[in-house]
């Protein structure tokens, strides 16, 4: 256990400092903040709604994450493959699960930092009105969990290829499925020909469906469990992919 946490922490630190050692981190954070701001105020009509909550902020997260998180994740394995460092890291005395966990946690914490930097919005609502801070906290937790799910997909697709571009595109496509599966207009189309249980099944698979209630301030155990299971499944798939195509 001790050895495991030591290895995960070494890889975690290396990856996280890798983000901040390159412009990627700053570009990501700036764009994330600009986009959330733009969507919240212009598209979400934060002020016009006149409500002291952050729903106009949180409701856009799935769509912003859809493009930004694959960009954060794409380098995690693809870069190791391209540089050949994958051969070093996987011949060190570490388990592959430790490497995957270290990489995942580093990227997740990085996104967490970006998310925390949206705190001025919280201050703004708190200043303008009397918001339900519990609901806001809940929204952040939900958003962070959903970010983890997006990230696990991106990490998995990154293991597929040495090309960051391919990794990005495949990740966006897979994530798009997970988002659209719960998007009302898409569900309406499916319900035109499929039985109700099938429509529900598809919708239940969606990041969106599970985010909606959290975004409203209801942190349901089932939603949390859903995101955690998606993350674990994707990380596991990541391990399987790497085991099968390490050298290519």
């Amino acid at each position: 256990m001790n050895q495991m946490s030591r290895n995960i922490s070494a890889i975690f630190k290396r990856e996280l400092s890798g983000y901040f050692g390159s412009p990627v981190a700053y570009v990501f954070i700036v764009i994330f903040l600009l986009l959330t701001g733009f969507f919240t105020f212009y598209i979400g009509h934060f002020f016009e709604l006149g409500q002291a909550d952050l729903r106009p902020f949180f409701q856009w997260h799935p769509w912003i994450f859809l493009f930004l998180i694959p960009a954060v994740a794409m380098r995690l394995w693809a870069e190791e493959r391209r540089l050949g460092t994958i051969e070093l890291i996987l011949t060190l005395p570490v388990r592959m699960s430790e490497v995957i966990a270290g990489k995942f946690l580093a990227a997740w914490v990085f996104i967490g930092i970006a998310l925390l930097l949206t705190f001025p919005l919280v201050i703004t609502v708190a200043y303008l009105g009397d918001p339900d801070l519990g609901a806001i906290f809940c929204g952040y937790i939900g958003s962070f969990l959903m970010a983890g799910a997006f990230l696990s997909v991106g990490l998995m697709t990154s293991a597929l290829t040495r090309s960051q571009v391919i990794s990005f595109i495949v990740a966006v496509a897979v994530c798009l499925f997970f988002v659209l599966a719960g998007y009302a207009p898409v569900n309406a189309v499916i319900s035109g020909w499929a039985p109700v249980w099938f429509v529900n099944l598809i919708a239940e698979l969606s990041f969106l469906t599970h985010f909606i209630s959290i975004e409203r301030g209801v942190l349901d155990f089932r939603d949390v469990l859903y995101y955690i299971s998606v993350i674990i499944f994707m990380l596991f798939a990541n391990g399987v992919i790497l085991n099968n195509r390490k050298a290519s």
């Binding site: 922490s9 890798g18 050692g21």
Partner: peptide, 19 residues
């Protein structure tokens, strides 16, 4: 192969940690 964005010391420190 070596991680290009690390300094020599950071890199060896990383390996030493894992070792």
């Amino acid at each position: 192969p070596v991680y290009p964005d690390m300094t020599v010391f950071e890199y060896l420190d990383f390996c030493a940690q894992i070792r």
